[in-house]
Design a protein around this nucleic acid. Structure first.
Lengths: 199, 199
DNA sequence: CATTTACTATACGTTGCGTAAAGCTGCCGG
DNA sequence: CCGGCAGCTTTACGCAACGTATAGTAAATG
């Protein structure tokens, strides 16, 4: 646990290979999906990426950090853009949530929870770089709806957002499948929770 | 990973010490809260419980299983009884959820997520013995309210339950504090999501 | 009393994380 | 064009922690 995240690459010696950057993250994502966090070894990631082990540790301070980085990359991949329609934006955000975890699994969350006491920076990074952007998008969409008069001003937006996003976690934990209409059902329930007039 | 959960204690040889049972689970709970899952070692649990390491493995097949058992015990401790008032029951269940994780931390959930691919029985046990009972209590409370006519029949109960419980997970992950009015805010939002007439 | 099971103490095998040492390799700055 | 810095490889290692094996003692039942 000594290596640095990214030492302000001033062009001194040999530059870091971006192809290796990609290969490492791709390998991490694949292995994560295939065998999960517990059975994924750093040796295996290095091998799959065609890279030596010290190269991994040059970039990431440890297994946990690597996994969080992999998650961030997947997450940022195709974040939905706001459309102006609150319901549509909620649905899009919920679908996105599902897509992300369908590609990586929820192990990432698990790591942050099990290491919370030992590596507090980890969950902080996850929050700042992956979780918070999603919430912010929902906050904006709600504020826009209020501004348009489609929603009354007193709506408890934070609670509604927590419930919408949380619905994903709870359903995943419960082991229930994510069927076709799930995002719509949650979006509609969220709108009701916000006090929106029934469609 | 060979030991058995509980080999049908027919009173043949020396009976298993229930004091040891308790000491082990108590030690696990304490250490869990103090250092988290990642830094909690089986040796430390054994030492804190005043027990030798093989005694641990006589009861639990591994660290993960031990932690899930500890969680179950805390959870069952003081599960709230239904009162007949839906809002009160929702609030009670949410408070209970918070109490449980305040005592143990969310590492338990983390373990189940990181080991999901390697130990599927683990998350299954968590679901059956800890998660499902809480959901069932909420389901019953909602069904009762429908029966009393306080709620219309078409309410999407499962989605509402997912959102109510999930709100806890999402807020925890976001790192926000659980202030005084949180359970009430979520309960009220849940009632609105269920289409309950405003109080 | 014999048997069966629990428990202790100790030591061990194994896995996998993270690091260290030594030596090339490629790129930038002067 | 060349000195030097940083990236990369190979190999090997230290080490923590999980889980197990062995041998002997303790406590219950029939």
């Amino acid at each position: 646990m000594t290596a640095v995240q990214r030492p302000a690459n001033r062009g001194r010696g040999r530059p870091r290979s971006t192809e290796h950057d990609d290969a490492i993250l791709d390998a991490a994502v694949s292995l994560m999906r295939e065998v999960g966090y517990a059975r994924m070894s750093m040796e295996a990631v290095a091998a799959a990426a065609g890279v030596s082990k010290p190269t991994l540790y040059l970039r990431y301070a440890g297994k946990a950090e690597l996994v969080v980085a992999a998650h961030e990359r997947v997450r940022v991949g195709d974040a939905p853009a706001p459309t102006g329609d609150l319901r549509a934006d909620l649905v899009a955000q919920l679908r996105h949530l599902h897509d992300v975890f369908a590609r990586l699994g929820m192990s990432v969350i698990g790591v942050c929870l099990t290491e919370e006491e030992s590596l507090p920076d980890l969950i902080a990074a996850l929050r700042a770089r992956s979780l918070e952007p999603g919430r912010q998008m929902m906050r904006d969409a709600i504020a826009r709806a209020v501004h348009q008069g489609a929603l009354s001003d007193g709506a408890d937006a934070e609670t509604a957002i927590e419930m919408a996003i949380g619905a994903y976690y709870a359903r995943y934990l419960a082991g229930r499948p994510f069927d076709q209409g799930w995002p719509e059902r949650v979006a509609d329930a969220t709108l009701r929770a916000l006090g929106a007039p029934p469609a």
